[in-house]
Design a protein around this nucleic acid. Structure first.
Lengths: 204, 204
DNA sequence: ATCCGACTTGACTCACCGTTCAAAGTCGGA
DNA sequence: TCCGACTTTGAACGGTGAGTCAAGTCGGAT
């Protein structure tokens, strides 16, 4: 019984994982069930045994992948004391391709797919808002800590500062993930740090 | 001869227009040739008489629509003298749904579709970069003018300030177009103005 | 009036892919 | 060893929609 349940949960996750990778490579629109089956190493029929429909699978895969990303980042940041260093680390991790050790799994490419889908699918829209909320909260927490400790001198509400920073990161990350020749990972990083210093009130 | 050529160019544009509208409504993925034909008021066959393939048509439609948006904004801004007022107007026009007179044609929804496509289609990627370049230049021009006239006191290069502002606008517009409950059009507008004031150096 | 070329139609073809299903395999427990 | 439930397969089905094409329309030029 429990053995079966475990096995089933593994398959479930295995498929979500494969799906996320295929979507990253081929794009949501070009992702076929057959691709996901092949990547998982099973027959196409099995995919539909675990998921009611392609659509549900794709939606789940998108939120799953972004969830993973958030959790990884959250874990890393919790280990750091200084709010300033937490912020730096958050920016490091947000710049696509900035840290060589995190290969080009391009979470941001998945985000863009989430946006497109959320535009029409209410279910996805709800998930997206929750994900974004959590992300902005994470940033706001850091800022609040910095304000409390005196590391950041701005008296603007942390929640507002978090919105500014989160959206700047989004906008820049888009350019970077698109390979814009003017916006390299290094430049995005520098820009984020400078704006953060200006807005939060700390010296670089 | 010239009559024919004119007519043909009209049809071309008519189709692009219809395509842009259909894409805005249904999304790129759900847009069928039959939809565009219906919206144009012609038979499906005719669409492929004017465009080699659905893919080319959709790509053209996306850049065409964003081009239109840029031109309209550019025209409006050129009529204003003060750099500060130019900037305010640019922000007005950038916030989805902020000005009631511009109905919800949601250029930003099209931008997201452009991004997804540019991720894989090199042709689209080239167009996107050019479009973005021009947009950032537009902002940089305004900033340069304001720096020259003393309206803006920041000495950071205009090009860098333009990147910061452009990306902030992108990031916020995404939230707004997604109907994020925390990020209303009014809030986006306020945030843009405040960050602009901070970064460029002017009083609100 | 007739012809010619551009424009337009809509029915047809054809490939593709999500989904279904019957049959086969696997495995743990009685 | 056998039973039954869960898992897995891969072939078959069916809908969909892009792209083709042969035939028709129309207007202007000769």
């Amino acid at each position: 019984m429990s053995g079966t349940a475990t096995k089933a949960r593994d398959r479930h996750q295995e498929i979500l994982d494969a799906a996320a990778r295929v979507i990253t490579e081929r794009g949501l629109a070009e992702t076929r069930i057959a691709d996901i089956a092949e990547r998982t190493g099973v027959s196409p029929g099995l995919i539909l045994y675990y998921f009611d429909s392609k659509d549900r699978l794709l939606s789940e895969a998108l939120t799953y992948a972004n969830d993973q990303f958030y959790l990884r980042m959250s874990r890393e940041i919790r280990r750091i004391d200084s709010a300033r260093e937490q912020l730096r680390r958050l920016i490091d991790l947000s710049v696509p391709g900035y840290l060589p050790e995190y290969g080009r799994l391009d979470e941001w490419a998945l985000w863009v797919e989430v946006w497109v889908r959320a535009l029409r699918d209410p279910e996805m829209a709800k998930d997206r808002e929750a994900l974004d909320q959590r992300w902005r909260n994470q940033i706001a927490e850091i800022i609040r800590a910095g304000q409390a400790s005196g590391e950041f001198t701005s008296t603007v509400p942390a929640e507002e500062l978090a919105l500014r920073l989160a959206c700047l990161i989004d906008g820049l990350a888009i350019q970077v993930v698109m390979n814009d020749s003017q916006v390299t990972p290094e430049r995005m990083h520098r820009t984020c740090m400078e704006v953060a210093a200006n807005e939060l009130g700390f010296a670089l």
